[in-house]
Design a binder for these strands. Sequence first.
DNA 1: ATTTTGTGTTAAAACGGTTTAGTATTACAT
DNA 2: ATGTAATACTAAACCGTTTTAACACAAAAT
Lengths: 341, 341
Amino acid sequence: MAFKKKVSLKDIAQAVGVSSALVSMVLNGKAKQYGIGEEATRKVLAKAKELNYQPNIMARGLRSGRSRLLGLVVADISNPFFATLAREIERAASERGYTVIYGSSDEKPEHLSKLMNTLANQGVDGIIVVPCENSEELIADLYLQKYAMVLVDRYFPKINTLSVSLDNAEACKNVTRHLLSQSYKKIGFVSYESELLHMTERVRGYCEAMQEAGLKNSINVLKLPQDKYQETMLQVFEQHQIKNLEALIFSNNSLTIQGLYVLKQLKVRIPEDLAVFGFDGGDVFDLYCPAISYVRQPVEEMGRKAVTVLIDQLESEKPEEIKRYVLKSDLVIAESSLKKK
Amino acid sequence: MAFKKKVSLKDIAQAVGVSSALVSMVLNGKAKQYGIGEEATRKVLAKAKELNYQPNIMARGLRSGRSRLLGLVVADISNPFFATLAREIERAASERGYTVIYGSSDEKPEHLSKLMNTLANQGVDGIIVVPCENSEELIADLYLQKYAMVLVDRYFPKINTLSVSLDNAEACKNVTRHLLSQSYKKIGFVSYESELLHMTERVRGYCEAMQEAGLKNSINVLKLPQDKYQETMLQVFEQHQIKNLEALIFSNNSLTIQGLYVLKQLKVRIPEDLAVFGFDGGDVFDLYCPAISYVRQPVEEMGRKAVTVLIDQLESEKPEEIKRYVLKSDLVIAESSLKKK
DNA sequence: ATTTTGTGTTAAAACGGTTTAGTATTACAT
DNA sequence: ATGTAATACTAAACCGTTTTAACACAAAAT
């Protein structure tokens, strides 16, 4: 009870009266290369179209050792940033004749590891990974095993992999400067417990901008424990800390959203009581009252670049040089971060 | 420059000193069935584990004619309802040893058609489809070609396919009754131009509930042209119609979100000026001020059911009977639909 | 003693493509 | 006439797995 049997090379070969080898050559556009006659070429192409021939991907894959399948592991597909990223990656891959299979790690290294295994089993040619906390070893292992791989959004400085990521320090530096320009001085930064470079860079950008402004003493970084964002924020904000702050920067999409839940619950007025700056956008930000400012990442570019460098490496014979690509973001300014009157 | 070469049956066979046929039988758990000796079985299993053998999926697929790949086409993966659905489907499929590849049709039949082709090319064993407008013919074609297929969220009454969907009429009847119970009488229903059953059923549920309440004359269904939701809503609402209404039911997730943009722009107070009821939930609904009530669909159940019926059909020899599964939803009530004081 | 039955194993074919080495045929140069 | 080269094509191997038919060898039945 599956799909109807498909047209094979042999069917075309028989119909035209040539060998299936010839048909294969013609349909792979290697007619000239192999010195196939014009007439044969024409007939084969015509018959293939007539019968609507579709190559059997498994036979091809088995022979060539390549599947034209890419694996993608994101942190969480229900996060709009990753959803968009996945979509762009899919689109770009499809343009180059590749199909993408994906999964979410939920920021758990065990999930990541399991997923990578599943993907490898499916015979993917290469993987695009958003690595999660504590996955450095795993990634290093794969790197040593010569997996074709590109890291996105985050990377490990010690492991020499292809990577595409944001200039995170600059982004947060710009956010901080913007808030400073709106005459906020006591600016807090909401982060989570993480060794991952993208996060430490974001923190660094904030700190540097504060230092530049001579506000070294006002630096205030809140590191939330994983999986307890709302709980911890509620406690911290409820107690007193929020009274000492004029603005808060949330350093990723889900932190922002969780933060908004808490601020809403505490009836904090934005930006009167507290200015807010978030990450990655989405309908939530635009529809919130007031609309929330955010860092817009070049998601499309990020996805396309990842696909391009990965496939280029896959298709090149000689091991290409390993590069890190760093992209720039911009700020979408809304009411939540404007000067209070 | 791809993955390192993997361990094959032959490697194990050589290491143990038996034929690869025997190894295949043992590793497929058919040792007893084929009367393989105990010792050989033990040795093979041990060696397979030692070498971390992973079967080559393409060789297996080529031989068996089955890929253990499922195709999934949703309307729009960036819609949280479909994102969650996709995730549940993936999870359920993975539990049964299948992998899912997916794409978004963007409600365009040409996209749908193209995607189905891509999926078929990838050799999927079966497909799970959220059919879009004007795709009835395409689906009917595939049905005639004996594609293993299950429709989700929507279906065509005239085509006898497996399907899993919501009791949409009942859902909207309940929404309408709820609003009536909150003493709203002039209730409008926002829909879009569509022949798809899920939408006509939603309209029907609303109409029936209004009739039940003796409010036949207050029935007010707004059908928006596709791709122009916001534009049209803005025009309609701006003019005058909204003044005659006390409540609005939005009949899917994106209509709700687009509607909120417009209502926000027009500074309509919810629920004082207008009560609002939406579909499918998400952070936007919970964080909106005030929180938006919505119909919660049993997404997980829907995904699991779709996977189950599809795989069951794939794996059964005899053509199973075609069934339609209809699931129930519940209402999440928030401030947006409560009685005005 | 010979056939039958059963047990444990293997050789070989098949899946559908790609690629290499080889074969025929004609054309050209020696 | 003979060797060389170019042209147009094909046979066959190969990828890794599954499955069928076959094959030894022993024990039991005739």
